[in-house]
């Protein structure tokens, strides 16, 4: 298996876990194995130890594509740990060296940069890019971009519009399908709308519950979304939905 062939697999996010578990046992490429190990740890818990592990993997890495994937993983861990300065540094490196990233890896790394600009409010990061035709073909990339757009509306206080765009993002993610993006779209749409339009928020929460049941089994993952479902059920006085 060529290293670049892992890109369409990992683009499904955590949903690709069974493939990654299989390939972790059947692949002999040390760069791929190291990347899979880090990816699985990142899905489980973003920690300081993981950052150290990514740094040592970056030093050992021979493959250019995997190197940038590792760097984008580092960016996501830093963002989750709220390490503002380092986040900005890694973001700038990836942005500056974007042209050096092998073509098959660009879309997925671009998504990571897009998510950083939209969700990280600590610093004023310069916007990553405008769309190219290559990116438009990818439903997950469209979903990421729509989420960034929705967050911009949220910042301006336009909650209803933001909620609508979050739902659009879910629709695009469903076409892929990318379960984490599908569910997080419904989750955000319902959560932010709850104070402005409880009835619509409640209807979206029902769809959220359906998608949680369809796509996820792990109770720890479900906890994130259960919180939204519980709070909205209480607000809507929908005891049976509780």
């Amino acid at each position: 298996m060529y290293t670049k062939h892992i890109v369409p697999i990992i683009s499904y996010g955590k949903y690709a876990r069974v493939f990654i578990n299989f390939l972790s046992e059947s692949s002999y490429n040390s760069d791929i194995l190291c990347y899979f190990r880090i990816l699985k740890k990142r899905w489980h818990l973003k920690s300081e130890e993981l950052l150290t592990e990514i740094d040592s993997a970056l030093e050992m890495c021979q493959n250019q594509g995997i190197y940038y994937l590792l760097l984008s993983n580092k960016l996501e861990v830093l963002r989750a740990l709220d390490r503002a300065l380092l986040t900005q540094q890694v973001y700038e490196i990836l942005k500056k060296e974007y042209h050096k990233i092998p073509i098959p890896y660009r879309v997925i790394i671009g998504q990571s940069l897009d998510m950083t600009t939209s969700s990280y409010t600590q610093n004023n990061l310069t916007k990553f890019r405008s769309w190219s035709d290559l990116h438009r073909e990818d439903e997950v990339d469209i979903a990421v971009s729509l989420k960034a757009k929705a967050r911009a509306f949220l910042k301006r206080g336009e909650v209803k519009r933001a909620s609508k765009i979050f739902l659009e993002a879910s629709e695009h993610a469903s076409k892929y399908p990318h379960p984490t993006s599908i569910v997080s779209g419904f989750n955000n749409a319902s959560w932010y709308l709850r104070k402005e339009d409880l009835e619509t928020s409640y209807q979206i929460a029902k769809q959220l519950a359906w998608h949680c049941g369809y796509w996820f089994d792990d109770p720890v993952v479900l906890m994130n979304y259960l919180d939204t479902i519980l709070v909205i059920a209480v607000m809507a006085k929908a005891y049976k939905f509780f």
Partner: peptide, 13 residues
């Protein structure tokens, strides 16, 4: 109609 959507989805599977 009386089932929570979470279980409905699982039942679909």
């Amino acid at each position: 109609d009386t089932i929570h959507p979470f279980y409905k989805a699982r039942y679909t599977l």
